[in-house]
Computed example of a mutant assay.
Amino acid sequence: MERLIIVVPAYNEEESLPKTINVLSELMQGFIKQKRISNESIILFVNDGSKDKTWAIINEYDKKNEHVSGINFSRNFGHQNAIIGGLTAAYDYGDIFITIDADLQDDVEAMGKMLDARLEGYDIVYGARNVRETDTKFKRWTAETFYSLMKKIGVEMVPDAADYRLTSRRVVKHLLQFKERNLFLRGIVPKIGYPSTVVYYARKERELGESKYPLRKMLSFAWDGITSFSVAPMHLVLGMGITTTLVSLFMVIYSVWQYFSGRVIPGWSSLMISIWFIGGVQLIGISVIGEYVGKVFNETKERPRFIIQDNLMSTEKKIDEKE
């Protein structure tokens, strides 16, 4: 039987963590009794620099629950890095890996379907929402717009799938070879290939604690996804530049025609509007180009994506290397 590692990023989750640990522990015990996974399976919590008692709770459960373990980052490195950090720490201990957020908004019962799909030979099983009834109209609209835009610019993604997925050991091995610092796992994982399928579920509302993804972070995350996988924004700026040039040329021809027609009217307003318009396009272009230059700058520094301060996984038994 394969050893399952459930990787759970956690940031300031002291309110929801005890319930999350109990729910996932009961679920794992059920899978073990059904002989669907190994008895040495583990729930690995990744404390992403929490400022509350999250790490203390993980430590407490590690001592009294043989299926609970954890790693502690030296500071907050972000959700995507927490997932990669967890997979990095867990790679030597598992055969299959499931990543899920600590708030339990993703339906944990979908893990059973993921394991069924794994038995059918799939290396990647994506968890995707079948409905978005718990989201506001604005959030649904922005999500649909984002997925539509990503598809148009050529980024392969599973619609309505977040970071709730099952991956095999060989998939994780290749995933860890992607060394970029600007991570967008929803776009990276499909690039790895291997047989994949999708399990659909209804996402729940958060019961305890506060959301760690307000609108500002969601927009920032979406922008990172777009700029990490496509130069489409630069093409858009090029299109705006060409359009502006054509409009300016038309205005020159129109002005000359007006001059020879004797209908010249001094137009301070139109002149200022033109200057501001062209200046705005230039600033947008410089900003977009600067975004890409900044990402290149961050990549060349090759700083670590995360730093593990405490690692409780060191007491676990490693598995033999498999191809």
Rank of each mutant, 00 (worst) to 15 (best):
K179L: 07
I188H: 03
A161V: 12
L183F: 01
L176Y: 07
G187P: 03
E156Y: 14
Q177Y: 06
L185T: 04
V171H: 09
G154S: 12
N182Q: 04
V189S: 04
L185P: 05
Y164E: 03
H174P: 01
L176D: 08
L185N: 06
A162P: 11
V189R: 01
P159D: 12
P190K: 10
Y164G: 05
L185W: 01
P190M: 07
T167R: 10
L166V: 06
L185C: 03
E156A: 15
F178T: 02
R165P: 00
G187M: 03
G154P: 12
R165I: 03
A162T: 15
V155N: 10
L183S: 00
K173S: 13
K179A: 10
I188L: 06
L183A: 02
A162K: 15
A162S: 15
V172F: 00
M157Q: 14
K173H: 11
G154N: 13
V171I: 14
N182R: 07
H174M: 07
L185Y: 03
R169P: 06
L175R: 07
T167G: 02
V155W: 02
L183D: 00
R170Q: 13
L183G: 00
E156S: 15
I188R: 02
D160A: 13
R186A: 07
L166N: 03
G154R: 14
T167V: 15
